[in-house]
Design a binder for these strands. Sequence first.
DNA 1: GCCGTTTTCGGCCCGACTGTTTTCAGTCG
Length: 573
Amino acid sequence: MRVNNSAVSAIFDDMADLLEIEGENPFRVRAYRTASRTISGLSQDVSELIADTQDLTKLPGIGKDLAAKIYEIVTTGHLSALDEIKKRVNPRLIEYMRIAGLGGKRVSALNSKLGIFNLKQLETAARNHKICKLPGFGEKVERSILQGIKRARDYGKRIMLPEAEEIAESVIRHLRESKGIGKVVVAGSFRRRRETVRDLDIMVTAGNSSDVSGRFLSFPQISRVISRGETRTTVILNSGIQVDIRVVPEESYGSALHYFTGSKSHNIGVRKLGVKAGLKINEYGVFKGQRRICGQSEEEVYESVGLPFIEPELREDTGELEAARNGLLPNLIELTDIKGDLHSHTSRTDGHATIEEMVSAARAKGYEYLAITDHSKHLAMTHGLKESDLEGQIEHIDRLNETLEGFTVLKGIEVDIMEDGSLDLSDSVLKRLDVVVCSVHYKFNLSRDKQTKRVLKAMDNQYFNILAHPTGRLINKREPFEIDIEAIIRGAKERGCILELNSYPERLDLNETHCRLAKEMKVKISIDTDSHSTGDLDFMRFGVGQARRGWLEKDDVINTRSLSDVRKLLKRK
DNA sequence: GCCGTTTTCGGCCCGACTGTTTTCAGTCG
């Protein structure tokens, strides 16, 4: 049976929640959560590892017991320990755990004292003021539960980076207007360039006398204050986004930035190293006994545990600490390494700018080249190009190139991959192009096997260069379609094809795990914007962020190369 | 439940804030 990693990790998350509600040993609960994270971060399916008879206990946080449980899940599709605990603890209580302010203890009390087990009943009980009468609960907790339910309902989703950037910038502008404020930095998952963020952690350095918290609370878009203290203040904005402000003294800048950037499990890893070295590491610094030995910069914090600086995008506890220890950290790609963009649209199909406008915007970014890759005819709603249209565009670009100096427009297409694996345009026109970007735009619901074969067959076409947005997912909107991504990467390797990392904030497709896998398998990535307007060219920063999360270096990415090198890499043998 | 220059048991990262308490448990990041 094929069981994917997200299924295993979801089962472990459920186990953790139910054990927590049952009041189990918190370290046992943590073991399940750690294992869930380990599994979801794997580049290979655990079912394949098992098929390869690999030793699962070699994975971090997986011991004999959890390895056996993974084996059970993969071979039977379920976990008897979970079935058992569900007999003792109502599994519907898991949804309570998602509400801010409710943890295992309170969920357990609500269930045992009031006998309620779904959100509707919880809401009714709160409205009828039954909850505040319970020991350990009060009116405020009751109110916060009601707000938590509403929030979970209204804004359950995480926001994408462009919106997060906008909010962060306006908060920062507001804070900077007050006196006595030193550095203001957005830390947290935003700094790690996660695909989405649930809240913003903004770190401020300031002296004791400055009232940062007061200044922050005068920000006009605050809908609710969750907590307010000297060093930490948390609010919910009208948009539903949570913003945390943390105030630290200037000398703690490095240790605080490290602490607030996370990830949590990366920090735990660093602190454990600290404990081994007889040090205590917290947001105020690195301490030997009572004595503070450093903490001014993040570099100092890492140095105190014998490590080089680790880039924020790598801090997910997915092997970066070990790599750092062994001097094997990647030299991550930078936005400034990008020399061009190989996927863009114009107003000829569904874009909003002419070729000339796109070219001038790309030149303004300092690029050497831009590929124009409009849609092919199958995408009728975009006015996709048929062969004769594309021939016209080819001639247009040839004439344009004659007028340009130091810049080249690459002739391209984003051609549809048909259900049978053929391409939407004939070879006779594809062969006249510099770059052929290929995409699945329909029939997302084929079986995993059929979808994989469809794309591999398309790659057999000798003009196939780049597989665009390989999994088709739209963050918060559409799940990735079923496809064996490892087989696709291997297929690309064998055929000399390139995989796209699409920089559209809602795509970011490939994800970081796929990028790492492609890098390991030595398949080149093209970080493209899929621009539909001149402004979209700026999406490149999101793609590069994702690439950095995927441990990619300059050499792993085709569009860091000069035009002549790109042309060579696009030539299939 | 994991893990080991304190190695097969006894630890397990660390601190802030809230609310309900009257010294602390629960939750969060």
